[in-house]
């Protein structure tokens, strides 16, 4: 196996993961709007139509529910579909299919039918886009048992996590930050490697405060912690949650700051806070702090910079935690 590395951005890394998995396994197929001839509106599926043909890279009609619903039928039949929903704001018509069927077909048939499907979708603020193009509603999917939720933060882990997601026996919602798509390049090995779906990653070790982030927020977090002895955790997979890595870190630092792009109320930070409060409260020296988007409708680009947690906001809240 070739292990040459190339400097790739996240779009290229995801494209490479798709290409390699499709080469390896003929049951992997891609379907979605504009994924074929156009290579996807972000070019994530570029060249795959030419390589694999229109039976495996399927330009579908403009209908999100049947994209995911058909993927469920394909998955039950024995394929490994990777469905693309063009923006996370357009995933809502598919929630019936994901919640009512994908998440429960294994349980409803006691394992006779399963749904090894990936739904890829770009999420979050970042490209000055129109209404409903900047959503970050990952917590909706974390609430639903039977579904996994994965959010890569770098080209390297995007490739490894996507390969794991495609091979996973259960439905995975795979959220790709539009802001990160071309923001960073890093060494991405060619050939097969996986990043497991049940492990969070310690990005940097530290002893004073644990800062938890994922996806796009990881990078602002890393800038914000520069003046602190902070341990930074990149969750990568939100559901199922790697509680052990969090508890271990919290027990060490005694302070927790959670950073996410989604609105605060019922955001995934609420689940993390409750989890830590239930099982590691006695190790805490400071109140749990959440740095999040506001409880508002996602603003259009003119105001979006005010919405997103900034490096300054994150830094200020870490300072608060450090007062204890």
């Amino acid at each position: 196996m070739s292990q040459n590395s190339k400097k790739l951005n996240m779009v290229q890394a995801i494209n490479l993961a798709l290409k390699e998995e499709m080469q390896r396994d003929s049951s992997v197929v891609i379907l979605g709007e504009d994924v074929g001839r156009d290579g996807g509106v972000f070019r994530v599926t570029e060249d795959l139509l030419e390589l694999f043909g229109d039976e495996r890279v399927i330009d579908t009609p403009l209908a999100e529910s049947v994209i995911v619903g058909a993927a469920i039928g394909m998955a039950a039949y024995g394929l490994k579909p990777v469905a693309e929903i063009q923006f996370m704001g357009f995933i809502y018509p598919t929630i019936d299919q994901i919640f009512s069927h994908a998440s429960r077909i294994r349980n409803r048939t006691r394992g006779r039918f399963t749904c090894p499907m990936v739904v890829r979708t770009p999420y979050g603020v970042g490209i000055k886009a129109p209404d409903l193009h900047s959503e970050s509603t990952e917590a909706l999917f974390c609430h639903m048992p039977g579904v996994k939720v994965v959010v890569p933060s770098s080209p390297y882990n995007a490739k490894g996590l996507l390969i794991s997601s495609i091979r996973d026996p259960d439905p995975v919602i795979f959220l790709e930050s539009t802001r990160l798509y071309r923001l960073i390049k890093e060494d991405v090995p060619e050939g097969e490697y996986t990043v497991p779906l049940d492990k969070a990653r310690i990005v940097q070790e530290g002893k004073d405060v644990t800062v938890i982030a994922w996806g796009s927020m990881l990078h602002r977090t890393l800038q914000a912690v520069e003046e602190f002895d902070a341990e930074v955790i990149d969750l990568m997979t939100l559901s199922p949650l790697d509680e052990e890595t969090i508890f271990k870190s919290v027990k060490k630092t005694g302070r927790v700051v959670i950073v996410h792009e989604a609105p605060k109320t019922c955001g995934f930070g609420a689940e993390l806070s409750a989890t830590i409060a239930e099982d590691a409260m006695l190790y805490l020296k400071a109140p749990l702090i959440r740095v999040t988007g506001y409880d508002i409708v996602m603003p259009l680009p003119k105001l979006e910079d005010y919405y997103m947690p900034t490096v300054e906001r994150i830094k200020k809240r870490i300072e608060e935690a450090m007062k204890y």
């Binding site: 049947v66 024995g78 019936d96």
Partner: peptide
Amino acid sequence: PVGTQVPHAVGAAMAVKYK
């Protein structure tokens, strides 16, 4: 949930055709 099985049949048919 009424009618939500229609896409599953369509997907299975796509798989039949592909295979």
